[in-house]
Design a protein around this nucleic acid. Structure first.
Lengths: 123, 123
DNA sequence: CGGCATCCCGTCCGATACTG
DNA sequence: CAGTATCGGACGGGATGCCG
């Protein structure tokens, strides 16, 4: 716990990086997904190595549950925990924000300038 | 723009990393802050190098405005743009989430387990 | 005061290959 | 199918020092 942090820092530890957010996002909507199924469903072509690593962390942090049916060929399923589900609100908003400003990521400065010069929207 | 991304990825580009979120967070509540004033107000003892770097990026992306009063000694002020203000909703929620689960960051797995085993809260 | 330059390390992340 | 092993490049981020 150490010093007073803004909560934002805490949240970033959970969701930061290129993949964890996407993985949680998918698991929030899918419930019980197999490894490769999850892998294929994620945009951006994640490697099995990365998916494995990120899932391991998410399981360690209690956000995701791993279910290994002891089978050959292997059958492992992942499921978001109730704790993991608590991230839904801000993942939802992040997704909305991102979709809204998607076009900005093309030429950021210019479009942001344009937006700033327009009548202020109601935020 | 390239392929369809989940918005989450876009948002993460803006807020990810150790500092950008905190900086935006402070600027959302302060409006016109000088460099070192901002620096001191941020939890976690950010170095001037980092603050400078992150602010540069934020300015490039149109989220923050830089005002250099041409003075000696230097007087530079930073201000969040109207575009930058649109991040307020999810920064707020991220902060709330982080504050709520602050204790979890001590021993994550154990407390998450505990939480998961409790009656499901209403999310 | 508000930076930038340099060094240096750990982590992120992708590509490829391999295994039970 | 569900990973792990290995390599290597890119990036984040801390420490220190210097400058106008």
């Amino acid at each position: 716990m150490r010093e007073a942090e803004t909560g934002i820092h805490i949240s970033l530890e959970v969701v930061c990086g290129k993949w964890k957010g996407l993985i949680l996002w998918k698991l929030l909507h899918k419930d019980f997904v197999r490894f490769n199924e999850l892998r294929r469903s994620i945009d951006g072509n994640i490697s099995s190595r990365m998916l494995s690593r990120e899932l391991t962390k998410l399981v360690e942090d209690g956000l995701v549950e791993r279910l290994d049916h002891q089978q050959v060929p292997p059958r492992v399923e992942y499921k978001i925990t109730t704790y993991g589900k608590t991230t839904a609100p801000f993942l939802n908003i992040m997704n909305q924000w991102g979709m809204k400003h998607k076009n900005l990521s093309v030429s950021k400065k210019e479009m942001a300038d344009l937006m700033n010069s327009e009548a202020e929207s109601n935020y």
